[in-house]
Design a protein around this nucleic acid. Structure first.
Length: 284
DNA sequence: AAACATCCCAACCGCGCACAA
DNA sequence: TTTGTGCGCGGTTGGGATGTT
């Protein structure tokens, strides 16, 4: 049996989110911060279950999400982390703060799994014994590890003070992470803006139910008003910083593992684990 | 141009964990 | 200790987009 679904109530909407729903959700979270998902539908009038709201926020609306193609570095990082951690997408996503676990999972399922199984096919044609296969895996992991080192040297923690600093200094928000997020919402809201523009021309103050200015919606929604730099330090962005700090910590641990020769034995242990995981992956 | 196949990703579902009462 | 609730995670699916015949 198990627990009944959380969203089996009548009148709960499913399917793609509309720009209006996004606006409602974002503006509510901007005011109250993320969390308390249960209360959001009741407080906002959204006909969505709490879970759906959380998912929409974490996978799409949250600031700092990078969308689009994965870079080679990201790809290598994912491959290696998957070998180390298995399908623990949330854990893997912790090392790629700009990507969501859902994105990484999708990318793995649609691109990397095929890619790797192809590679495996090629290599297994050449060698059939388990010993050789394990040696090959070990080699792959070492190569991936080197790739990870390269990736880390290129992609230092994207967060931290620099990130905050960027935001603080910005009259113009040059932060790529924010920009992409703003773009997400901008695109979503384009249609909505067009529709409301007519109204705004006749009555600016009513143009946007979540904004009291005529600035582009995303900036206003996230408190990124260039006239009030301190506004960038909203609870939202604090939340982001916190997540980023956690990611930094994870990065540090990884870097320790990568660079500290004194933990050679622990490295071996990790690689042993990854061997098992990786074998399971390919045997399925 | 139309029909069909494949890809891709946003969203859903069910389960497990943590925590409070 | 048990039970109920909320949240997060990983697996899966639906359907639009794109490619192929």
């Amino acid at each position: 049996m198990g627990r009944p679904p959380c969203c089996d109530k009548l009148g709960v909407k499913k399917g793609p989110w509309t720009p209006e729903e996004d606006i409602t959700l974002v503006s509510y979270i901007q005011e109250h911060g993320p969390g308390n998902w249960r209360t959001i539908p009741a407080n906002t009038g959204l006909k969505r279950c709490s879970k759906s709201c959380r998912l929409r926020w974490t996978n799409y609306l949250r600031p700092g999400i990078k969308r689009g193609n994965f870079t080679d570095q990201e790809e290598k990082l994912i491959i290696h982390l998957q070998a180390l951690l298995g399908n623990r997408w949330a854990a893997i996503a912790a090392y790629l703060p700009e990507r969501t676990d859902n994105d990484i999972k999708n990318y793995w399922n649609t691109h990397l799994r095929k890619k790797l199984s192809k590679t495996h096919e090629l290599s297994s044609n050449k060698s059939s014994s388990k010993g050789q296969w394990e040696r090959r895996l070990q080699t792959d992991i070492n190569m991936a590890k080197q790739a990870l080192i390269d990736a880390l040297s290129l992609e230092k923690p994207p967060i931290s003070d620099d990130h905050t600093h960027e935001l603080k200094n910005s009259g113009g928000y040059c932060s790529a992470t924010y920009a992409s997020s703003a773009e997400n919402i901008s695109k979503l809201l384009e249609g909505w803006m067009r529709n409301t523009k007519k109204h705004s021309e006749s009555n600016t103050s009513e143009a946007c139910s979540v904004s009291s200015t005529t600035k582009p919606l995303p900036e206003t929604l996230f408190g990124l008003d260039s006239e009030t730099p301190e506004a960038s330090e909203t609870s939202l962005l604090h939340g982001e910083s916190k997540a980023s700090m956690e990611a930094s910590t994870s990065f540090s641990m990884l870097e320790t593992w990568l660079f500290d020769e004194s933990v050679e034995q622990e490295q071996d242990d990790l690689l042993d684990v990854s061997l098992v995981d990786t074998c399971q992956l390919f045997s399925s």
